[in-house]
Nucleic acid binder design. Structure first.
Lengths: 362, 362
DNA sequence: CACCTTGGGAGGCACGTTTCTGCATGGCCA
DNA sequence: TGGCCATGCAGAAACGTGCCTCCCAAGGTG
């Protein structure tokens, strides 16, 4: 059977294979492969000729075949823990969305594409996609997905310090304790006498570290802890918890909320109780939303810098995939940023509107 | 060379191939494949035996080989137009994040994974990933990416009515004209005499359709148009444009803002000019953020239902991939939802806080 | 003239599946 | 007893690349 016949039989009308290019250019498959990939010893004339023929035929190399042959797919996974049937929770939404966006950008800039896969996904989805490596967000202790991945020899980089002895390749995280302590000191400096905390009931690392840091700070300065915990994945529960916190007999004169919607919820609750912010109540919450720059009053927020984390995580992962021994340490701590606005400044409240923030370096 | 030798040479220590399973189970490759995929004529005993051996060896079928053989990768692309170097713009961020989340969920529920790819990505990324089909968001007229994809015979479903004669397989969109007209009527009903518009300078379909609908409505009711346009991708420009709109000599007594941050920006501008909302100024903006439920006052928002759109788009795409002739029409119009809050109700303003919204069906 | 080097390119195997085809066996019926 | 069908599996051909090996011709060198 002639080569022309072979190539004609296998391919559907729309798709040209490397064999078709070779036949049309009058060269061998090897030459086509070498010419298009910049390898081998070929004169420029041949290289250009092959490229031109390939363009004319609209040739696109088969990603599946290349992956099978080289063992590299150019795909990295982004694994998130799921609550219910949604890929990510409501409260972490802004953080996760920003982080995923930055990760996508960073991956694309290095020639990789990013696939979002929930940790508890149907098994067939996981085995249907060839991954070169995976980013896991806040993996739980003894996470079965991570173990399985490292068993397959794939690099795994974690957003969030891995609990227990999870064998991740690298990890990136904030210093949550330092962030909470910084905020509590900031509130105390602004005149707070009793600082309350709005926290979550779930057992993830972020909630746990932040809460214990708060409790230790209270112990150190001799304040009774005043906090309300609620299921953070329930968007309605936050408003109720904020209300409960301000309804307590030992009502705090300053509150830090660990989750994104806590700021508006606390503002609304303060209005209901006739509390002026910041005069009667100082407010800080952890959020990535720029809307807090133009609320009444503007609310001081702690940014966890999801964009920097997403970028760093992907860089570490791709370095590991490509065997680059990164100059960066395999454990990176990204500093948080406290964006101080009116809600946490009792002295000399700014009357001017705080300048709009640039979208970069968030 | 014996089969055992063959299988031992090719595979790395960590990964077991189908040949290893066949050898360990004492059957042929065909039998393993049939047993694991539920095909062929095999007694249950053989099937169970093969499955057990495969589990014991930790066998995971190679996605690349399967894709190469079957032509189906189980991956669908989500293509977004880029402004600058980021995958999606700042103003569309909440909409896009929600839409992408819903699309991811819907894809996973049907056994597919979703890859986010910017339209103007480096070409090697596009050719490195095997896609079964693609969702494009708001494709421009004569979009080269779409043409290329349909030339390859891949189904393409569009979020947003395709401009020109773009040969998409199906599309999903809101009725933006009807939405704008509904809002303008709503504001007029609430007592507005001169309604202003905060719009964008870019030429995408959403901005264009909404603005022309506004202009036609003005013509019909005999009102002079009062609008300010600003580059929507610039997060700072919105605040300036909101300020400009309220500083005009023909200051409107009601404003509709086309983009997500317009609500807080307009609220801040109104405070600067001493305008009470809703008494002196009625306010509506298009947003997916639940924060507008607890601003002061709560702001009426138009939701474009990104979750329903993301789900619908993916369903249509997978139906097309799998050759299902969908009962649904290939052109779906998703209704928008006007969430009426205090900012657009001059009569009987609600003093109670509007109930927190459920996260579903947004 | 024999030998080596270097450029230019072809042959063919392997990656790990899926699946088409076909072989053997045994039971059933005419 | 011979044909026939159902059952239970094995062989082997693809799928489309990448790359290792090898071949050939043209010079250069002793």
């Amino acid at each position: 059977m002639s080569r022309a016949e072979t190539s004609r039989r296998g391919s559907r009308p729309g798709r040209a294979g490397i064999r078709d290019v070779a036949a049309a250019a009058g060269v061998s498959i090897t030459t086509v492969s070498d010419a298009l990939n910049g390898k081998g010893r070929l004169p420029d004339a041949t290289r250009r000729h092959v490229r031109e023929v390939a363009d004319r035929l609209g040739y696109r190399p088969s990603a599946a075949a290349r992956t099978l042959r080289t063992g590299k797919s150019g795909l990295i996974g982004l694994t998130v823990t799921t609550y219910g049937d949604e890929p990510f929770t409501f409260t972490e939404f802004a953080y996760f969305a920003e982080m995923a966006r930055a990760a996508t950008s960073a991956a694309l800039a290095r020639g990789y594409a990013l696939v979002i896969l929930p940790a508890t996904s149907r098994h067939d989805v996981w085995s249907n996609v060839a991954l070169d490596g995976t980013v896991v967000i806040d993996p739980s202790d003894q996470d079965p997905v991570v173990s399985e991945l490292v068993r397959q020899g794939l690099p795994v980089v974690s957003d969030g310090r891995p609990a227990g002895s999870l064998p991740v390749t690298a990890w990136v995280d904030n210093d949550h304790e330092a962030a909470v302590l910084g905020i509590l000191d900031h509130l105390a400096d602004a005149g707070a006498r009793r600082i309350g905390l709005l926290t979550g009931t779930s057992t993830d690392t972020y909630t746990h570290l932040s809460t214990t840091a708060y409790l230790r700070w209270c112990e150190r300065v001799g304040q009774d802890p005043v906090y309300e915990a609620y299921p953070a994945h329930d968007p309605c529960a936050g408003a109720v918890a904020a209300d409960r916190l301000l309804a307590r007999p030992d009502r705090p004169d300053a509150v830090y909320g660990l989750f994104d919607p806590n700021g508006t919820d606390l503002l609304a609750a303060a209005r209901r109780y006739g509390l002026r912010v910041p005069d009667d109540l100082l407010l800080v919450c952890c959020s990535e939303s720029t809307m807090y720059a133009s609320t009444e009053p503007p609310v001081t927020t702690l940014s966890l810098k999801p964009r920097r984390i997403g970028t760093a995580v992907v860089q570490l992962l791709i370095d590991a995939i490509e065997g680059v021994e990164s100059e960066q340490p395999v454990e990176q701590v990204i500093p948080t940023e406290l964006i101080v606005r009116t809600s946490s400044q009792r002295r000399s409240p700014r009357t001017t509107v705080s300048p709009p923030r640039t979208p970069d370096d968030r």
